[in-house]
Design a protein around this nucleic acid. Sequence first.
DNA 1: CTGAAAGCGCTTACAG
DNA 2: CTGAAAGCGCTTACAG
Lengths: 329, 329
Amino acid sequence: MNIYDIAKEAGVSISTVSRVMNHKGNVNPETRKKVEEILEKNNYTPSAIARGMVSKSMKTVSVLTVDIRVPHYARTAYTIEREFSRRGYEVSLCNTGGELEETIKYLRTAREKKTDGIVLVGSVFNTLCKNAEISGLLQNIPVVLANGKLELPNSYSVLVDDRYGVSLAVEHLIQKGHREIYYLRDMDTVSAQLKCEGFIAEMEKCGLKNARQQVLETASSIEGGIKAVEQLIRRKQKFTGIVCGEDITAAGVVKALLHYGIKVPEEVAVTGYNNSEYAKICEPQLTTIDNKPELVAMMSVQLLTSLIEKTEVYSSCTIQPELVEGQTT
Amino acid sequence: MNIYDIAKEAGVSISTVSRVMNHKGNVNPETRKKVEEILEKNNYTPSAIARGMVSKSMKTVSVLTVDIRVPHYARTAYTIEREFSRRGYEVSLCNTGGELEETIKYLRTAREKKTDGIVLVGSVFNTLCKNAEISGLLQNIPVVLANGKLELPNSYSVLVDDRYGVSLAVEHLIQKGHREIYYLRDMDTVSAQLKCEGFIAEMEKCGLKNARQQVLETASSIEGGIKAVEQLIRRKQKFTGIVCGEDITAAGVVKALLHYGIKVPEEVAVTGYNNSEYAKICEPQLTTIDNKPELVAMMSVQLLTSLIEKTEVYSSCTIQPELVEGQTT
DNA sequence: CTGAAAGCGCTTACAG
DNA sequence: CTGAAAGCGCTTACAG
């Protein structure tokens, strides 16, 4: 059943049916009523594909993320989806795993389907977008990078000042009298790099010169946190504070410390990052950094919407994280 | 740039260009090569919308879930997305919040866009699909319900035996010598109902007749778990075991018990449900039930794919959860 | 206020 | 092996 069938049944032209469906003016009220009845009676659903054919848009936005199972990405993607849904766009979900080939694959279909816009969630995309093929695929499509900066003509970004975020944690520990502070760094993204720099800068600012040697690389997982603590203990390092780049790692750290009979926060203070549910479940509850994924998502959607609809003026922006005090400091 | 431009540039007809792009036979190798060069040179991307117009499919599947931020749904959606991506389908994400109006809205656009299939993730959809408008919208579209049963002609389901899941937890506690066992029930979905029945049935099977009075309703959150424990203590109930319908609730229970100086598992044993990251972070680590979201997702994708492509034979199936012993029992 | 016609960019028989 | 033509289901000027 298509617009021709409806037109025939109503005894009008397809132009008129189209006008009625799209609530355009210039239709005789009686004609409108008759057409509406027939539409209703047949429970008619117009084809969005045919519409897309002429408008060159399917009202769809692609969200590329590393892995939706990571709570931080889930929170970001959730808000992005809800907001775009409200605005009449469908959201297609892409779990790239941070891999080049997968990202290319997703972007290719996005292009073929004429996506209205793309949100890249995660600072991995900073690195990925340096690839020529990827930046080629991104051409002429509105792109917003949630937490990162792109050097592309039609791309904008919503940055989170992760450097500042970690510096807040360090400052907090130093205020509490800690001096022997270690940083657990995970992964190799731009964001991880910035966090680490935030640690070193803040430590040095406070006259703690050895900061660079107090960075440990570890997997961002409970096990990663546990292993880091074991390493510190094995090496007989002195430490009273551990700043982590992720809540999940911090949860592992707390677990390990308690298992070794080290009191948290009395003997060692710990901070996480993300203000996630993990931080709340952790016992004692983690002091953590709120990097505001919902706000990042909101700003990204606003930016992308204005790029797509070319309405308002737009510009990139930066979000400042905040410290959320728990019981581990 | 469209197929006509390519055809003109290559000096052939659009039919030939189409044949080359779709790797169909019957093209002179030389002609093929020339067309491919021009395709390559222009970095040509065929329009999936125009293709969809004739095939009546955009190779897209809609995944409706309650809230992607719930880890269990995130895990399910992740696997669904990855599997469909592998099979050449795009996945559109819909956070319905379990609400009727939102669900209708998503299904309506899914129909307009001629989605190839729909996966409903979560047992809320059992209830929602009883609504006439919803079942109407689901007509003539392949549908798979991940954890639920639908009475629709073209719908199939992948069930998780949640009744059995909770009975495993109860059986485990009883084996460990517990008799005063409470169940924390959350929400009002079919799945929550089944879990609760599993508790009562298993308790009664073991001769514990008061089971029905040992069910507490509480929010599925850390606070929900804490409140339930406070309630039990306030009412001076005797209890040595608490079975929870969700890991997150169990995490709250453990927190509360420890705060009251009650040892876990020595004085009170606790079990969760979902085998989530929450269970692992909880200290002591939760004994929980693995309800296998990845397997549910895999089966759902297989089912839906065969429904869409009408290839293999297909049928609904049921998955049996397993107990994962942690340190809280 | 209404309709005929062109066009969106492909695929797919069909004829040659 | 190749091309002309119809068709997918709409929207959008344009003419009346």
